[in-house]
């Protein structure tokens, strides 16, 4: 499908959000900061997959988004448990 101007703007904003989250992921400075950044990035990726489904017109990616979101949550809880254990 052809994109409207607003849709291109939305994609640009989302891309900037991904870049900023990545920046926090790289900068740190502590492990918890990186975990938070990764968590945020995971949610952005989930909605990003939904947008990808819309761009490609294929509902198959919705299932991918669903599973990705679930696994990201499980991963975050697992990492949180690890941090708690080390404390």
């Amino acid at each position: 499908m052809t994109l409207t101007l607003l849709e291109i703007v939305a994609l640009g904003l989302l891309g900037a959000a991904v870049l900023l989250s990545l920046l926090r992921l790289i900068l740190g400075p502590t492990t918890p900061d990186r975990v938070v950044a990764a968590d945020t990035l995971a949610v952005i990726t989930t909605s990003g997959l939904v947008i990808l489904a819309a761009l490609l017109g294929s509902p198959l990616y919705l299932d991918v988004a669903l599973i990705y979101g679930t696994l990201a949550f499980v991963g975050v809880v697992a990492i949180a448990r690890t941090i708690e254990g080390n404390g």
Binding site: L11, G12, L13, L14, A17, T40, S47
Partner: peptide, 8 residues
């Protein structure tokens, strides 16, 4: 997308 960017 704007709210997501604000969050970032």
């Amino acid at each position: 997308a704007a709210f997501t960017l604000f969050g970032a």
